[in-house]
């Protein structure tokens, strides 16, 4: 292949690359700094509200993986009490269909996304692990009533002046990585 003016294209590309030397960073140092996730995040856990749940098992029917185990017995009056409510988060695909199908808003997606465990058995979320608590809060996925409580998502689209997260070069001394967690 013949080129009339060899080098123009590369010079143009290098000019662009050179311009990028002087812009502000567009990445963050992940384990040390974190972006705020979406309010509707489908995190790797689910949040269960025991007082709202009637044990109707609509969530178990809607699960594409057949992953929700629920067993009830008749309590006082017409109320059913839940004996077992288990979700194996190792088999869950976090599609959120159980949350969408729940007629009593008793199930919601969680916020956490760092759920690595050392044993497979630890991935099974029992009634106690699923129940809502102070550090186990629901996300606003299909539950718009929780939207106001959650912090605003930090979008990379906006820079700091427009309300986005501050992105900066983190010096090596401030990084915790490699210090033996």
């Amino acid at each position: 292949m013949k080129f009339e003016r060899y080098g123009i294209g590369i010079a143009k590309g290098m000019a662009l690359t050179f311009r990028h030397l002087f812009r502000s960073p567009i990445t963050i140092q992940y384990p040390d700094e974190k972006l705020v996730t979406s309010r509707r995040i489908r995190g790797n856990e689910l949040v269960w509200f025991p007082e709202k749940c009637t044990g109707c098992a609509t969530c178990a029917k809607s699960c594409p993986q057949g992953n929700i185990v629920i067993s009830t017995h008749r309590g006082e009056g017409s109320k059913f009490e839940v004996d077992i409510f288990e979700i194996d988060s190792g088999r869950c695909i976090f599609c959120g269909l159980c949350v969408e199908s729940c007629p009593y808003d008793a199930l919601a997606m969680g916020l956490s996304y760092e759920c690595a465990k050392y044993r497979r058995g630890d991935l099974i979320l029992s009634k106690e692990k699923l129940a809502v608590s102070a550090n186990h809060q629901p996300s606003a996925y299909y539950r718009p009533q929780f939207e106001d409580k959650l912090p605003k998502q930090s979008l990379l689209l906006y820079n700091q002046a427009e309300g986005g997260q501050k992105l900066k070069f983190l010096p090596l001394s401030k990084r915790k990585r490699g210090s033996g967690a």
């Binding site: 996730t37 979406s38 309010r39 509707r40 995040i41 489908r42 695909i93 976090f94 599609c95 959120g96 269909l97 997606m109 996300s139 996925y141 998502q153 979008l155 990379l156 689209l157």
Partner: peptide
Amino acid sequence: REKIMDMFEMVCGQRLLYN
């Protein structure tokens, strides 16, 4: 693409498997 995925995350909660 990160900006696009932020927008997807905002609407449907995940960045790759939207459902």
